[in-house]
Amino acid sequence: MQQLLTTTLSGLTLGFVYAAFALALVMIWRSTRIVNFAQAPMAMITAYVALVLIDAGYSYWIGFAAALLAGFLLGSLVEWLVIRRVDASNPINPVILTLGLFIVFHSLAALIFGSRFRSFPAPFGLRGFEVGDTTVALTGFGIFTILAVLVAVGGLVLLFRFTDVGLRMRASAFNPEVSRLLGVRVGRMLNLGWALAALVGSLSGLLIAGGGLVHPSYMDPVVVYGFVAAVLGGLDSPAGAVLGGLLLGLSLSFVSGYLGSELVAMAALVVLMAVLLVRPGGIFGGIAERRV
């Protein structure tokens, strides 16, 4: 019973982080039909921004806010400098490009911040709550993680559903040419989409880093998990990405808790292959195939 609860709670916490990362991937896929392989190192860079500020004596929250802002700006910059210049008529071009960015950001981080492991603080306790004489695996930082992702997802839902900018962004993603004819500055909207996606990616990077160690590759496993979560959700559906992330976090936590932690990465890939083979449109059926 104790282990079941622990496994479930730690799986949920991790699931929220994967959900955020998957959501960032889906936002970019939906609007530009690009899988952003560079999203993990982009998040990694911004975690270093936070770390540098925190090490310089600023509070965790200053570092946190600066990292999110850095993520927003980095996403915008990458779209503007690189992505909009690529000829996407051949789908392999953007793949090579974001893989190239992946390597560039890694090298830059190693060059600027060094490649040794550095510990990253957490703003809340990392010990579980004690209920009677048992310890529940939900930590203060775990609760913060869940709330932070919920706030981010809620904010995006409000933005996309209930604001003019959100409507313009959705229209640009669905039909760029018609949107232009309606006076939507589509390039600007796609840029904003990249910026917001990178911000959400940064959030997941900060949540993974909190109370742990960062180094230039610390986010790389999350690429795999985030991608699996996004594919689980159908790659085109933000809600699917969030559900996919939660489901994956829970499944992997159970694999780790009951079968052994060395099997986690393999389990994720098995899930990925199973979904691609059996339900390539994602497991949450009924999500309409994108019209071409």
Binding site: D164, R168, F174, V178, S179, L181, G183
Partner: peptide, 25 residues
């Protein structure tokens, strides 16, 4: 204003969202 060949309805948006988008322009 240009209504393109094939009409250019944004199928994934509601009728009202399509109209509101027009007004925003």
């Amino acid at each position: 204003a240009h209504v393109p060949e094939g009409r250019g309805v944004i199928a994934e948006l509601t009728v009202e969202e399509n109209l509101h988008l027009g007004a925003l322009g």
